[in-house]
């Protein structure tokens, strides 16, 4: 059914719209909402021992995104 497809598209658009709205709110002066970059920065600091697990996962995920959308 095409309605199901439109629901899925609406879900994706809603998610991206919410992300854009949050990023806008985060960049307002005095905002206590962190930006997406700040969240990524904190996640990338996660380590297990000397291994920068957060950094490896985030950089690897970004690499995979490029491969998935642009090469596959």
């Amino acid at each position: 059914m095409i309605v199901v497809r439109e629901l899925a598209i609406a879900g994706f658009l809603g998610a991206f719209g919410a992300a854009l709205g949050l990023e806008w709110a985060a960049r307002r002066p005095g905002s206590r909402i962190p930006s997406l970059a700040a969240i990524c920065g904190v996640a990338m600091r996660y380590r297990i021992g000397r291994l920068p697990v957060g950094r490896i996962v985030m950089l690897g995920f970004c690499w995979w995104l490029g491969w998935h959308f642009l090469a596959r």
Binding site: L22, R32, I39
Partner: peptide
């Protein structure tokens, strides 16, 4: 630089 900790409002994400 990145913040050391995230505020509770990060949950909005």
């Amino acid at each position: 630089s990145s913040p050391d900790r995230l505020s509770a409002r990060a949950r909005w994400w």
